[in-house]
Every structure is written in C-alpha cells, then in structure tokens.
Design a protein around this nucleic acid. Sequence first.
DNA 1: TCATTCTATGTCATATGTGACATATCGTCA
DNA 2: TGACGATATGTCACATATGACATAGAATGA
Lengths: 113, 113
Amino acid sequence: MKNTKRAKLEAAGWAVGSVKQFLGLSEADEALINMKLGLSHSLRARRQQEGLSQVQLAERLRSSQSRVAKMEAGDPSVSMDLLVSSLLLLGATSADLAKSIRGGVKGKGRHAA
Amino acid sequence: MKNTKRAKLEAAGWAVGSVKQFLGLSEADEALINMKLGLSHSLRARRQQEGLSQVQLAERLRSSQSRVAKMEAGDPSVSMDLLVSSLLLLGATSADLAKSIRGGVKGKGRHAA
DNA sequence: TCATTCTATGTCATATGTGACATATCGTCA
DNA sequence: TGACGATATGTCACATATGACATAGAATGA
C-alpha cells in the first residue's frame, strides 16, 4: 500500500468502489480497502456509542489519540489486525466483525453512484 | 503476540478455546486468534481445492513457500492483512471471508472439549 | 536404498506498522 | 476575540511482519 490520496478520498466520503479503476487498483486491493473501511467505521460508531473521546479510547487500547484518529480515518498505515483487535476490546463479537467486513462501508455515502 | 507455543498447540489440532486460560490470554486475544485460524484453514482449503502446491500458491501471491506454510499453520508472525489479501487473490469474496471469520476454526477438532 | 515432491521450521535483511509527540484545524462557549 | 476540548496530520524511533534462503521432515515411487 503506497498511495495515500486514496484513503483521503475515501475518508472524505466517496462512495467506495468508485475510485477503483481511477487508480491502478486490483479487485483484491479494492476489496481489502473496503473491508478496512467497514471496520474503521464500526470503530468510530462504537466509540461514539460509548460516548468516548479518541483520547479515552486510546487509553483503553493502550495506544495514542493520533493512532485512533488514523484508524477511524482509514489511514493506509493501520493494519487490519489493529482494527480488529481494537474492535474486540470494545466488545465487538466475531459476528459483529463479520458483518462489518462483509458489508464493507455501510454509511450512506454522499456521491453514491 | 509473543508466545509461539500457542500456535503450535492449535495448529496441532486442539479445539481452539480450550487453551484460553491456560496461557494468559484475554478474550480479545483469543477471539483474534480464532479468526486468524479460521482464515488459515480457509486458505489451505482453497489452495487444495485448486490443486496447487504451496510453491505454486506462493508464486501467485508473489511470496515464498515458507510464508505460505506459516500462513496455513497459523503462525503468529503472519498478519491478518496477509491472510485476507491472500484469500482475496484466491478468489474469495467478502462474504466468504466474513464466514471464515465468524466461524473461526470450523474443522471438527480432535480433543474437542 | 535413493530420488523426487511437498511441507515445516529457523534465520535474517529489509519493509511496514505502531505509539508517541508536536502541531494544526475545527467547533463551541464565554 | 480568546480559551478550551476534540479531532486531524506529519514525523520519528522502535517493533513487528515479510520474502527469501537454507534445511529438515514426510510421503511416494523406482
């Protein structure tokens, strides 16, 4: 993963999938990104659900606010492992994660195709 | 992740979950490991389905035989990202992955509790 | 027995991810 | 306006994952 524009575009609310051929993304790359974005959004949703700030969540995860921000932004520098283990620490079940992964990005995107 | 005995035990066919308190594993750690094992097994299943050797699969993935072996063995050194992207390259869909993740290890384990 | 093929395991240099820090942006309230 | 809290972004030292290589074990066939 190199291109950073990608994540920015997507985090900015693009309908994911629309940027596929735009950059040289393979189907697999695209799918992986979608899955990660699904997890990112789940993470933010759960955090807000619990009424936590990024700082508070970072404490629970024994991480830092900046990393939490990056997780939620779908930054290419965050691994799926980190997203998943964070969600698990927030109480998500395997079934929850499966849903996030399968559904990819759920939030009604602006610019929807 | 540090302990390597863990993966060995599990790869050896233990009913996953039975080793939980045995080592100092949190629920989250355990869940993550289960998910990874589910993916590992899916990978092996798909490879065999296609009649590929580990060497052949490694070529497709632009990786090496040893890493494929480690992926399939559930070695702690392999990331979820690698497992997932490998499965995607093998043609798995998001739904397939969701299933593997949700179900964790599927194979009827010996030593079942 | 020896070859051959496939898989497992250990090690290493390099690539990538991570937490931490600084700093910027944004919104809200006085 | 300024101050405050929350979030975003860039950078860096250190940790971990990765591909590659060597080598060992296991299974099969001659």
